[in-house]
């Protein structure tokens, strides 16, 4: 049960300190005093004492990593429910049932919101309404492609390159002879920015979880380079001089 908690938290984008303290908290509530945890960027090592000098140690892997804050909220709610009287099998079942654990917002809403957010961001840098429309269309298209590729189990980095390529091409074509084309391109790519990775990285580094912090930081840097590769490919096709 503890491992399931940790795995879920690690999969859905929690920082290391949060994973560790919530596992410890749940262990205390389940009545287990001694516990050793080692957290890797994509795995958890748990060691529980059972009897005299006999330890149960096991390694659990987190299969994928995405961002899903509702799941974090639900897992913490389950930890709160644990006490002497509660039915443990039921809680474990609740943790294992992924569908009910993290109800996603409807797909079309997320797609629309990706477009709206990036469009509004272009207004922040002084774009006009036409730029807003271009960023909206480009990022909606990009988000659609992104979720399509991830559904078919593409390598995430390659899919990021492809998505940023397509987004830049479409926003660049829409604003081909416009002076503010750079605003449209720069803001339509925004939904790919690895903000969770960067903030988690600094969070971990300052709380002395150096390994996970470094790995998350490197992951963020790789994602941003992938975005840059996609954009530069697209701009070479369209002609660099037009978009300075």
């Amino acid at each position: 049960m503890l491992s399931q908690i940790g795995k879920l938290l690690l999969q859905h984008g929690a920082e290391t300190e949060l994973v560790e303290t919530s596992i410890k908290n749940a262990a205390m509530k389940l009545g287990c005093q001694e516990l050793a945890i080692l957290i890797f960027p994509n795995a958890i090592l748990l060691s529980l004492p059972s009897g005299d000098k006999v330890y149960n140690t096991q390694l659990y892997k987190a299969e994928r990593q995405d961002v899903n804050f509702t799941a974090l909220d639900k897992v913490i709610g389950v930890i709160e429910q644990i006490d002497e009287t509660s039915d443990r099998a039921k809680l474990l079942e609740a943790l294992k049932d992924e569908k009910s654990l993290s109800p996603m917002y409807p797909y079309y809403l997320r797609n629309l919101m990706a477009g709206l957010g990036c469009g509004a961001f272009s207004l922040l840098f002084g774009g006009d309404f036409y730029i807003f429309a271009a960023a909206f269309i480009a990022s909606t298209l990009g988000f659609y492609l992104n979720s399509f590729l991830l559904k078919h189990y593409f390598n995430p980095f390659i899919s990021i390159i492809l998505v940023s390529f397509v987004t830049t091409i479409s926003s660049g074509l829409l604003t081909l002879h416009n002076e503010m084309a750079h605003i449209a391109i720069a803001s339509s790519i925004l939904f790919l920015v690895p903000s969770v990775a960067f903030i988690n990285s600094v969070n971990d580094l300052t709380k002395r979880h150096y390994t996970t912090g470094l790995v998350r930081g490197v992951r963020g840097v790789i994602i941003s380079f992938a975005i840059a590769i996609g954009i530069s490919l697209a701009l070479h096709l369209l002609g660099v001089e037009k978009f300075v």
Partner: peptide, 20 residues
């Protein structure tokens, strides 16, 4: 305009990250 920008950007990214 600023208030509406802040509103839409933060709302849309909260929904993208599936916030409760």
């Amino acid at each position: 305009l600023d208030i509406s920008i802040g509103f839409f950007v933060s709302l849309s990214f909260a929904i993208l990250f599936n916030a409760p």
